[in-house]
Each structure stands twice: as structure tokens, then as C-alpha cells.
Design a protein around this nucleic acid. Sequence first.
DNA 1: AAGTAGTTTAGAATGATTTTAAAGTGAAAA
DNA 2: TTTTCACTTTAAAATCATTCTAAACTACTT
Lengths: 132, 132
Amino acid sequence: MDSKDKLRKAGLRPTKQRMIIANILLDGVNRHFTAENLQDEINSSGNSMSIATVYNCLKKFRNCGLIKQIETSNDTAIFDTNTHQHHHFLNEETGELIDIEDDEINLKSLPKIPQGYYSNGVEVLIKLKKQD
Amino acid sequence: MDSKDKLRKAGLRPTKQRMIIANILLDGVNRHFTAENLQDEINSSGNSMSIATVYNCLKKFRNCGLIKQIETSNDTAIFDTNTHQHHHFLNEETGELIDIEDDEINLKSLPKIPQGYYSNGVEVLIKLKKQD
DNA sequence: AAGTAGTTTAGAATGATTTTAAAGTGAAAA
DNA sequence: TTTTCACTTTAAAATCATTCTAAACTACTT
Ligand SMILES: [Mn+2]
Ligand SMILES: [Mn+2]
Ligand SMILES: [Zn+2]
Ligand SMILES: [Zn+2]
């Protein structure tokens, strides 16, 4: 399935700009990135795109479930092409994130979800500090 | 132990401004708040403080372990007076956070911490959506 | 009382993200 | 195929949380 089909299937009109981004992000390789990271990759692929469009596309991709945004109090939003439930180590000094696969963490006994709500995902974050 | 002693014990010089904040935050009641929330409380307590000082104090308090900052991709930093390890439900629509006590979640089999690092805290976030 | 490092502050600066509004474009209808 | 129009892109301005600057202040030590 090519990028155009992936966009159509996600309900997004396949514009030139979204195709460029889909070609970079939806290659099956898991990556964590910021809007600026992505714009740099777009530039080095010989294309260019306004930062407003990068943000517009990331929001659309996120709302469609093509990517997700990681819950971190970093001052720059970090996105993730791994859309399966999984978790992260966070190096608080550098901001670096490392994936933890879902089966590496055994979450027994989740608390009762408040009345009228349902769980829309569980994220475990393990904050790391350098020894000594 | 009064606010002055708590500040001294934490290694902070007890200034007028830090006392005002300590009186509000360190009363044993758990709360989640932003810098602006806190400034509003300061104002309604009959005091006033520049927003720079609010941020300065919050950073000092956080670095001393008197409060902590919650890992959330909210665009405004959220602080927590509950400094014990615990977890949260996040209502993604409203940004509201609800505490989950540490013993309500059973985290068996944590993954191996990367070489040269140690775990500086585990945060579980359960994202909630409204039913229907 | 004097000295000094640490603190507060108003206001400016920063930096990520969003908004604006005008021009462009994809897809459906005619 | 041409027309149409809602959706998209863009540069530039705006927004907004947070940090910085530099001058005035203050808690503690001597
Ligand atoms: Mn922030
Ligand atoms: Mn943000
Ligand atoms: Zn990941
Ligand atoms: Zn809490």
C-alpha cells in the first residue's frame, strides 16, 4: 500500500505535502521526532514546507491515528510513529526517549475507570538519571 | 512544623514570597495546579507576587522535592503537591488530572534499566475519554 | 552596622505553536 | 472537460507560557 492509499484509508485528502510527510513517516520504522526534526528531514529530502503546514499535517495525522503524541512535559511536542500501546524511558537531562514494548511491562490490576469514561490508552514513563 | 522550618529543612532561604507560597502549597492537601492557578491563589489570599517570582519559586520547590511536575503534554506546566510516587487519570478534553494511588496499580516486571542509569520515578498515565 | 550572595521584579526576550487571510488545489458535479 | 467549492497551504503576525535581564532589595554572616 503506497502513501496515497494510506492517507485515503485514514480519511485524509492526499495532498502533495501530506504525501511528502507520509513517505518519510509511514515507512514502518519507529521514530520519535519534533515538528522541527520533521521539517529538517523534509528539507534534506529535497522538498520544503512551511512550518505551519508541518504542524497542520502533524495534527491531522495524530487525530487520524497515523502517529501519536507522547505525554511528556518537554517544552517541544514529541511525536511517535509507533502507534501501538507501548511505553518509554525518558532521559530527563537530554530529553531522549527509548521505547519499552508493551509486553515488557506487566500492568496487573488497573484501577477502576471513573464512571462515564473509558480508557483511551495507558502510558508508562520511567524517568532515568545518570549514575554518579 | 511551620512553613519557615519546612523551607529551611529543604535548604531554601525563607523569603517573604516563599513563605506565602509554602503556606498555600504545603498544607498537606494534595493539589494539581499551574503557575497561573497559584498566582491567583496568592492574589486572593491578599498578597501579590510577580509571575517571574512564581516561576522561580516553583522551580526551586521542585528541585528541592517539595513539589513535583507532572509529565503531560499539556501546553501549561502542571505541578503536584503530592510528592509520593503515584499516578494519574487524564481527561484529555479538559486537561483534568485525577490521582491514582501507587497501590492501585500493580507494576510487575519492570523492564531492565539501561546500563549506567537508574530509575528516577515511574509515572503511569491513563487517558480518559467520555463515553458516547 | 556592613558586607555579600541570593532573591525579587518589571519588562523585554524567547521559542513553540496557532491564527490570519489570501492564494492554491483536489475531487466531485455538471 | 470545465466548473465549482470546500479544503489546504503559506508567510507573516499573533499568542502565550516561560525565561532572561539588570537593577533594587533582603536574609543572613561577620
Ligand atoms: Mn512547557
Ligand atoms: Mn506544547
Ligand atoms: Zn515510542
Ligand atoms: Zn497527583
